[in-house]
């Protein structure tokens, strides 16, 4: 098939960007979307032009590196599929495809489709962990965990940190990302001691990073390639209210997270 691409090109963080038009010819339906871009880039290089910068690594939908808005949707048209797992059989001959970076205050563009997502790491550093030292753990089967809780924790822990939720949100909020970690650790006995301090520190960091607030649009859940549920946000809100009422203040400082 033959396609026309309109790709956001921007030389650096401070530069102004614009869409450039490229023809993608003889695209096989078995190619992945990123392989299609590889072919376009190969041609650009041979013509002496600068290839399109985009981030990717595992190409298996798990590392969370790839992230681009395709025809207005983070990761493109297929629900629950990352850009790297998207295949060209989802497009038809003659399609016009618009490709842009994540757009959000918390994710400044570095070049073309590459954005700076380091804010996510800082949200985790604020408290997205269990404070356990290496070598201090009891036997793994000492505390049985109901299968239901373990599954719930795993559902939330499946987040790949790609940032599609932020890109999809009209407020540029990272609440689904933050809530996924809060829900993961909150579902397990190991996460209980720091449950309320965690939510307080992580939320404060979230706001400091310039992410917007959550007003329940739900676009994040629809855009999430891993199907993380907005129930996580409800859980975060419940924990945040309890934290505001003073729960968990006994742990303040001990977690070591900087608010």
């Amino acid at each position: 098939m033959n396609l026309t691409l309109h790709v956001w090109r921007q030389t650096g963080a401070a530069a102004a960007g614009r869409f450039e038009r490229y023809d993608a010819r003889d695209v096989s339906e078995h190619m992945s979307f990123l392989e299609m871009l590889d072919v376009v880039n190969g041609r650009l290089i041979e013509e002496g032009k600068d290839p399109i910068a985009f981030e990717h690594d595992c190409r298996e939908g798990i590392c969370g590196s790839c992230g681009m808005v395709i025809n207005g949707r983070p990761h493109g048209p297929v629900p629950r599929v990352t850009a790297c797992q998207l295949h060209m059989r989802s497009f038809t001959d003659g399609d016009q495809i618009w490709i842009e970076p994540w757009r959000a205050r918390g994710f400044p563009v570095l070049k073309d489709l590459v954005v700076d997502r380091s804010a996510f790491d800082r949200v985790i550093e604020a408290g997205g962990y269990v404070s356990i030292r290496t070598g201090a753990a009891p036997d793994a089967n000492a505390v049985p965990i109901p299968k239901r809780d373990a599954e719930r924790a795993m559902d939330a822990a499946a987040c790949i940190g790609c940032g599609a939720c932020v890109a999809a949100c009209p407020n540029g909020s990272a609440m689904l990302f933050t809530a996924a970690k809060v829900a993961h650790l909150g579902a397990l006995p190991q996460g209980q001691p720091e449950r309320y301090s965690r939510v307080r520190y992580m939320l404060a960091q979230h706001d400091d990073e310039g992410f917007g607030s959550c007003t329940n649009h739900g676009n994040c859940e629809a855009a999430c390639p891993k199907g993380i549920s907005i129930d996580c946000i409800a859980q975060l809100n419940r924990d945040a209210i309890r934290a505001a009422l003073g729960k968990g203040t006994e742990y303040a400082g001990a977690a070591g997270g900087g608010a």
Binding site: A137, A140, N141, P146, A150, H184, Q190
Partner: peptide, 22 residues
């Protein structure tokens, strides 16, 4: 042996049986 203990303590959600064991 220690690795599994360490990871469970960190909150790694390993698969479990109905009785709650790994």
């Amino acid at each position: 042996l220690d690795i599994i203990d360490q990871c469970v303590a960190q909150g790694v959600p390993f698969a479990r049986e109905y009785g709650g064991l790994l």
